[in-house]
Simulated scan of single mutants.
Amino acid sequence: MIDEEAQWYYCLKHHKVEGRVGCRAKDRIGPFATQEEAEHALEKVHERNEAWKENGDDA
């Protein structure tokens, strides 16, 4: 479980990591437990998309 005070997000609009207060939810990926995890958000998305493609999960 993620501590609500220590949430980090990756902003798709500004291409940077933000804390709990930041851009609108539709422009962000997260929450992440650490700032470092949020910094690698796009890499994680890419890895998951590739795994879904390999497994034939088109949903």
Rank of each mutant, 00 (worst) to 15 (best):
V45G: 06
K13W: 11
G22M: 08
N49F: 03
C23R: 02
E39A: 07
F32H: 06
D58K: 06
H15T: 02
D57H: 13
E5K: 07
A59G: 10
R28A: 02
V45A: 11
D58Y: 12
K26W: 03
R48K: 15
G56P: 11
R24E: 08
H40E: 13
H14I: 03
Y9A: 01
R48D: 09
Y10H: 09
E47Y: 14
A33P: 15
T34A: 00
N49M: 11
F32M: 09
R20L: 02
K13R: 08
C23D: 00
R24K: 15
K53R: 11
D57R: 11
G56M: 00
D58E: 14
C11S: 05
Y10W: 04
E39Y: 10
E39P: 07
K44W: 12
C23A: 10
A51T: 07
A41R: 06
W8I: 04
W52L: 10
E36A: 00
G30A: 03
E50P: 03
E4D: 02
C23Y: 00
E5R: 00
Q7G: 06
I2L: 02
E54H: 11
G56V: 02
K13N: 04
R48H: 14
D57A: 01
H46L: 09
Y9Q: 00
N55Q: 15
A33G: 15
H15S: 14
G30Y: 09
G22N: 11
E43R: 03
E4S: 06
A25T: 01
E18L: 11
L42Q: 05
E18R: 05
H14Y: 12
Y9T: 02
A25D: 09
E36P: 13
R28C: 03
R28V: 01
D58R: 07
W8A: 13
V45D: 10
R48L: 15
V45L: 15
E43K: 14
P31V: 13
A25H: 05
E39T: 07
L42E: 11
K26I: 04
H14Q: 00
E39K: 15
F32R: 07
E37T: 03
A33W: 10
H14E: 07
A51F: 14
D57F: 09
E37N: 08
A51G: 09
A6R: 08
E43L: 12
V17C: 14
Q35V: 04
W52N: 10
E36G: 02
N55W: 14
C11F: 05
P31C: 15
K16A: 13
N49W: 13
W8T: 06
G56H: 15
H46K: 13
E47F: 09
H46W: 11
P31E: 12
D27E: 04
V17I: 04
A38N: 01
H40Q: 06
N49R: 10
L42Y: 09
G19V: 00
A25V: 14
G22I: 07
F32E: 09
A59K: 14
M1L: 15
A6D: 06
R28D: 06
Q35L: 01
E54C: 04
L42H: 03
A38P: 12
D3N: 12
T34S: 11
A33V: 15
V21G: 05
D3I: 10
K16S: 04
V21R: 03
Y10E: 15
M1R: 09
N49C: 03
E36I: 12
A51K: 15
L12V: 06
H14T: 05
I2R: 05
A41I: 11
C11W: 05
F32K: 04
C11A: 14
Q35W: 08
D3K: 09
